[in-house]
Every structure is written in C-alpha cells, then in structure tokens.
Design a protein around this nucleic acid. Structure first.
Lengths: 219, 219
DNA sequence: CTGTGGCGTATGCTCAACAGTTAACACCGC
DNA sequence: GCGGTGTTAACTGTTGAGCATACGCCACAG
C-alpha cells in the first residue's frame, strides 16, 4: 500500500476549521439545521466558539460541497432538495460508483477488495437492528470503501464531495418515509458481480440499486 | 475606489474572493505557477492585493478543486500530476460525461440540445487555427455545455469541480507533446449518437475519446 | 395608501497581532 | 572537522476589532 502519510500516533490533531466543518456537516445532515434555514456568521461563530474568519473558511467548503446555497448578497442558507435534485444526485452517484465497480472488475487480483467489501457488508448486517444513524453510516462506509479500493483518488474525492448531499437526501426524505431497508442483498449482488469480473452486471446492479433508493426517498 | 456604483448591465460584480479565485486558477492552469511550487500566503495576498483572510477562503476552494495539495503543516503547493492521476481524472470525466450523454439521449425533445452542441463544435472549428488556449477553451465549452444541457445541477457542479484538474492535465503534459488535435470529428460522433438517441453508442464514443485523450497526454 | 428616510443587521474585507511549529543557520565544545 | 545545540526567521492557524456597504424593516410624513 502506498502509505504516504505516516500514521504516527494515530491521533491527528484537527484544526479548528476542520472541527467546525465536521460539526456543521453533522448538524445539517442530521436535520439540526433544517433545510432553508438562514445561517448567520456571527451566530455560528459564537455557537462554535471560533472566529468569523475561521468559520468563513469552513462555510466556503460546505458551500462547494453543495450543503449550503448562497442567496443574493452572499447570504447562506441550508440547501433545500426537491425530488428532482435527489434523483439527480443519485444519478451522479450511480455513475461514479459504476466506474468504481468497473475498475475493481478489471483488477487482476480482486481478492483483497472482495474481502474488504464483504467485511463492510458484515458491518451493515450487524447494524440492521441498530439506529437509523448506524445503518446509514455502515451503508455509506460500504460505498466509500468501494471507491477507495479502486485507488483512484479523483474518484474517491468526487464521491466524498457528493457524500454530504447524499446524506441530506436520505435525511430530507428518509425520515417520514419510515424505516428503509438498506438492501443488504443488493450489496451482496454488487460484490458478487465484481467477484466474477462482470463489469456490465455490476453497472446495472448499481444503477438499479440507486434508482430504487432514489424512488424510495421521493416516492 | 468607485465613485458611483453604477450597476453595469449584465455584468455581475465579482467579489474579491472570486477574482482571486479566477486569477489563481488561471495562473495554475497556465503554468505560471508551476506544479510543486510552494505557495506563501503573505506573498500571494500582496501579489493579489487582497487580505490574507480573503485569500485563505479562495485557497480552500482551490484545495477542494484539487489544484492545490496540502503539505505537512498546512503548507500548500501546486498539485503535481503523474501519468496515473491523469488517467484517473479522465476516467471520472468519462463517467460524468457518459451520464450527461445518456441523459440527453433520454430527452423527449433533443432539438435544442443538438443545436447548442453543434454551435459549440462550430466554435471549436473556428478556433482550429487559433492559439492553443483558444482551442482548449472551446473544447471545454463543448463538454461543459453538454453537462449543462442535462439540467442536472449536481452533474454540472461535479464536472466543474473537475475542470481545473482537466486543464492542469492538458497543461502538464500537453505542451511538450506538441500541438494536439482536439478531435472535432469525435465531437461530431458524440452529437450524432445523442441525436439518434443511442445512449450506448454515445457512452462508448465518449469513453474512447477520453481514453485516447489521456493516452495522448501521457504517452 | 404611498414613499421616504433612518436604523439595525449582516456580509465583504482589512489590519494587526500572537501562538506554535519548522527549517535554517550560526555556534561551540571536542 | 563534526556532532550537538541554541537562536532566529519564516509560515500557518487563529483571533479580535473595525469599517464600508447593502438590504430589510419600520415609523412617519404627505
């Protein structure tokens, strides 16, 4: 593996900016900051106990992730997703993950990848009766792992840029739609397709999975 | 500075941050700021005549676009792309544009889209004997237009996030590889496939186009 | 009912400063 | 000369105060 960054002591000291970023992301994707809500810099900086300057850097990042939308005079508000936007997000997601699956299918040795993905599925199954949050987390882990295993940093980065929007989509519509089945079977199908190296099958499986997921959310 | 704030028709006044963003993007993709070069905030802020705070906001955005890479202590440097990374970037690009083409293929009325794309190709042909910069510009316009025409904002946003990396790839390897043919014919093929609604053909055409483009760059 | 001027608010941007961390370099004893 | 050591300079991370501007709101006059 290309362990460029030394793990050192396992504890990476995060800058205040990164902490604020995480906190805001969580607040948004958890619904604490409801869609449409206006964000006031001074309020947030006081709330997070950081300066306005540092906060603004974090806000720029969230804006580019698509979690915030900019109003007329730079006024930020939590992005509101409608049904079409959710479908659009999942379309892009499907395209990225299809590329991931295809890339994995073309690997000469897929053993390690298969094992990693099955481990991720095991975590999903273990969380089947857990909280909604846990199920979302393990589900996202599976898909992020798939992208990471390709070794394509750009692909992983693109997917991670979309992750916030995906979580917002689930949060936005997933709650009143009741408990959703995260489709462990589907994930097994995807891994199976990768195992046999059938890129085409993997692609259609992922696309079906995404279409169905989007349908569940906006139905 | 400005005496009367006359609202210039059609021209949106860009914030200093956005101006700095554009300036830096151009400086990087033009090679003025060479790959690997360390960026010093105080230098840049003085160069661009903006404060450090405002500059840092722009830098965060460039970092997320993948044009800058962060060193150990937050030290930023212009990202250096190797052959594999260029191929990876073009793989993701192909995946996104394939989705765009497929989406356009599924439109009930593709007339407007076809016309827009042909106009973009015309611009490319008009720039055939122009500067390298002009040819790159018109080429990017075509592909950006294709993404925009889908009406999928997320897709467009993802593509635009990749645009800087694409330009860097071309700049990085395109110059010493000599004048490249931007492949007007290929673009005609793509539009033709969209016109007939053949999503599969459009997909393979785009992928071939991208593979070939990447090969040209890293060969 | 209308418009108009003031006031509060929030963003865009700047400046000055300090802490903490590295890298560079000069220095010193051996 | 050489290894260890101190000192310093360079940068980033972060803060706080502060100013200009633009927008919305509201009272008040017409």
């Amino acid at each position: 593996m290309a362990g460029a960054t030394a793990p050192l002591l396992g504890l990476e000291k995060k800058s205040l900016r990164e902490q604020a970023l995480s906190a805001l992301r969580t607040a948004i994707t958890s619904g604490e900051l409801a869609p449409g809500r206006h964000l006031v810099e001074t309020e947030l900086s006081e709330m997070l106990q950081i300066s306005r300057g540092t906060l603004r850097e974090a806000l720029r990042q969230l804006e580019q992730e698509g979690l915030l939308s900019a109003g007329p005079r730079g006024r930020l508000s939590v992005r509101h997703l409608d049904a079409k936007e959710i479908r659009d997000i999942f379309s892009v997601r499907a395209a990225l993950e299809s590329l991931a699956a295809r890339t994995l299918c073309e690997l000469p040795d897929r053993e390690y990848a298969i094992r990693s993905l099955r481990t991720a599925i095991d975590a999903m199954e273990a969380a089947t009766h857990g909280t909604l949050e846990e199920r979302i987390e393990t589900d996202m882990d599976f898909h992020r792992t798939m992208c990471r295993l390709t070794g394509n940093e750009t692909l992983l980065h693109s997917w991670e840029s979309l992750e916030g929007s995906i979580r917002m989509s689930i949060m936005f519509a997933g709650l009143d739609k009741g408990v959703r089945n995260m489709g462990v079977d589907r994930h097994h199908d995807i891994v199976a397709a990768i195992e046999t190296g059938d890129a085409s099958l993997a692609r259609t499986t992922i696309r079906d999975h995404m279409d169905q997921a989007a349908d569940n959310l906006v139905a």
